[in-house]
Design a binder for these strands. Structure first.
Lengths: 240, 240
DNA sequence: AGAAAACTGAAGAAAACCTTAAGTTCCCAG
DNA sequence: CTGGGAACTTAAGGTTTTCTTCAGTTTTCT
């Protein structure tokens, strides 16, 4: 159907905080990206020329060289590399707009891993020119449940359901892992930002909200696996 | 029905400011143009003969060679290439209008990306002689909302509505992306000029104005997707 | 039955958004 | 050149929605 990629996608992660680098590189390696890490602006530039990444994840706040300047020099090179900026919520959110050009995008710190992975996938899709393929541009489906990424719409049996941002993110995560049980810890790690201090009980609350909104009338899709986590799946006829 | 284009459209971008070049080339590549960049007048001329662009985006203020002279020599060649001039707002508006002949056009700096892309599309349409195709001659429609590019008119349910330039541009952007959620940052990037320093709150104001003018009495089309952005779409259920 | 886990509902806090108003800039008419 | 108006921008208070916590209740398992 779709021809296998000739080589793995290469991502350069640039951040001065080692924790962030570790978090991102581990996550990205897990989904089969080839990852290289740089802790500063100059290091990033040299790494970029040698490594030739397909995408750069770039913190705006760097000790030696402003992230924007790094991006500028990256773009000055022969082949323009798309950039995903990481930025503090309060600080530079304003100045970001205008500097994300073309396929670029940004996420604010603290981010959730789902958010980052999602944005990365979107950027790569765009920069490859897979422009208008209706097939895989953000439409997730399971049974009669449908989540449209672009329209940010969710339907159950064709009926539109309004979800809050967090509800939406949680449902998307469940959909991506449809048929698989995900633990509350996993959900917290992926859907909530990395600095979230609370415990897993908040997941219970949001599962509750989701159920009320999308799992009320029809055969239930969200199932509790006691002591383990939650799973999105069709009810099985025979169960032990 | 519509045969695929034999080859991509080639655009030569000429400007001495690297940021502008990067901004334009990234944007144009994103919509599947083949882009070549030149930073000066002479460079532009040599690039033009070799690259054979279908269109040239040409800054008037160049260090080595006046943009008009570049255009002149370009036209002297065998095949006349349409030109989109970039010019400072205060500069010589008179001379521009005299020198943009044929399919040519111009935009003033600082421009918005929507404006540039729009003009480029218009030029290409004209220079190809796609004269009377009712399909894409600047008529956008969604539900009972109608935006006429050429006449610069907007109608809701047949009723004419007066919009200010910015309101018009914003509505056009929403219409082009009908059914999809666009974030305030995206809107700022595309609808406002690249040097705009403000933040996303101005978008809120303009959405408010738009709603008062086109979304007051009928089934609402402009929807807020909290935490994400705005979308132009029909209220619910009905999908085509 | 008792304990552990999960569910439910409510409420305060925080964030996002809406609305109005006032200040600024720019252009045109007088 | 100057006054007025339209359009743009910024500011700020009010409103709504969402996030988060928590405690009481129910379910499930041993």
């Amino acid at each position: 159907m779709r021809q296998p990629e000739a080589r793995t996608t290469k991502v350069l992660v640039v951040d001065d905080e080692p924790n962030i680098c570790a978090l991102l590189s581990a996550t990205l390696r897990l989904i089969n990206f080839e990852v290289r890490v740089a802790n500063g602006g100059h290091e990033a530039l040299t790494a970029a020329t040698e490594f030739e990444p397909d995408l750069v994840v770039l913190d705006v706040m760097l000790p030696d060289l402003d992230g924007f300047q790094v991006a500028q020099r990256l773009r000055a090179g022969n082949r323009p590399v798309p950039v995903l900026f990481l930025t503090a919520r309060d600080a530079v959110e304003d100045r970001i707009s205008g500097l994300t050009v073309g396929a670029d995008d940004y996420v604010t710190k603290p981010f959730s891993l789902e958010e980052v992975v999602l944005r990365i996938r979107a950027i790569l899709r765009r920069s490859r020119g897979d422009s208008d393929e209706a097939e895989d541009n953000g439409l997730l489906r399971y049974a009669d449940l449908e989540l449209n990424e672009d329209a940010h719409e969710v339907r159950r049996g064709g009926k539109l359901v309004e979800l809050s941002p967090t509800e939406f993110n949680l449902l998307r995560y469940l959909l991506v892992n449809a048929g698989r049980v995900v633990s509350k810890a996993q959900i917290l790690d992926r859907v909530w930002s990395y600095d979230f201090g609370g415990d897993g009980r908040i997941v219970e609350s949001y599962v509750y909200y989701l159920r009320k909104k999308i799992d009320r009338w029809e055969p239930p899709l969200i199932h509790t696996v006691r002591g383990v986590g939650y799973a999105l799946r069709l009810p099985r006829g025979a169960e032990e």
